[in-house]
Nucleic acid binder design. Sequence first.
DNA 1: TTAACCATGTAAAAAGTTACATGATTGT
DNA 2: ACAATCATGTAACTTTTTACATGGTTAA
Lengths: 186, 186
Amino acid sequence: MSLKHTILGFLSWKPMTGYELKKFFAETEFIYWSGNNNQIYKTLVELGAEGFVEKVVVQQENYPAKKIYHITGKGLSEVREWAMGRPEPPSARNSFLMQLAWSDGLSEAELLSLIDSYQYEIEMKHVMCKEKLRRKSVYPGRNERERYIWEMLWQNRINAYRCELDWLTALRNGLDKKDGMGGGPK
Amino acid sequence: MSLKHTILGFLSWKPMTGYELKKFFAETEFIYWSGNNNQIYKTLVELGAEGFVEKVVVQQENYPAKKIYHITGKGLSEVREWAMGRPEPPSARNSFLMQLAWSDGLSEAELLSLIDSYQYEIEMKHVMCKEKLRRKSVYPGRNERERYIWEMLWQNRINAYRCELDWLTALRNGLDKKDGMGGGPK
DNA sequence: TTAACCATGTAAAAAGTTACATGATTGT
DNA sequence: ACAATCATGTAACTTTTTACATGGTTAA
């Protein structure tokens, strides 16, 4: 699993607590883990045991103490090694496509309503990504190249949603054509 | 989980064995489960217990006996219900994007080589999907609408890979431009 | 002879999700 | 009064992957 490496990546940007990591995970579209407590806090302990990170405990007055994790030299080279490794092909989990695949029992109206709901979801995501790119809330811009890459990461998601919306339009057009051709109502 | 429903969907097309299901799972890009034995055989037993499928055991001469599962009326309405349900937004698991995100430690050459490897993977996938659409090996074309939908399902994947390749071209162009602008070697 | 195909399954581990637990503070 | 933020963690559960187990047949 590369959850470990994703966390190390964030820590290679700047030291942070598990709580902060969790927030970044939630805000970043192209990270697919839910970033729940169980995973993050456990993984941080493991990374510590492996010598990739170290922590500093900071006491606070009105809030609970926080553990700020920072990456070690060993951790940095681990990130480098991982980042150079052979990339896996992406895997998309799209249950809507399965619903479409086995929609034979649905009427024309039910099918169109299903497509509507999906299109709505995608439009939301599309807008959200454009907004996130604009706001640049998670944005480790340490140099020109990194700034450019992070913009392109958001652009990747935006393009994917744009592509999905175009496909939906084509799908709808094709269905209308088939519907219209048959001659008279069913 | 909708693995249950995906299996039911296949069985709503035609009766088949766990072994056949496994092969269809492996051949169909837009199904994301690995479709390993453990999941499929166990799920078939569960579906039987719920009354969604029934099985017929067929003895064979030179091969092990096979259990042919067929869907029940109850199973068919379950598929219908599920297919009409609110679709979830898709979630893409792309570890390459994470590698890019934390590629700050990589040289220009290492970064370009990483992009090359990814592009190669995507090109392979893209070609494979186009070939699968052409061959129509998994293709429950029971009527005009279903045939159209299954073509569009493959088209969805083809478009997604096409989109990814276009993005990669843009990414490369942007990097080249930045590289050229800086003035002189690093 | 080596691998792939046919066809079923089980065991164990890893990964991921949901809910619970604490407890003060700050904003609506 | 209610929800959200800060901040950590644990317990129970579900999902998914990997590997093991059997054993004859067929094609390179």
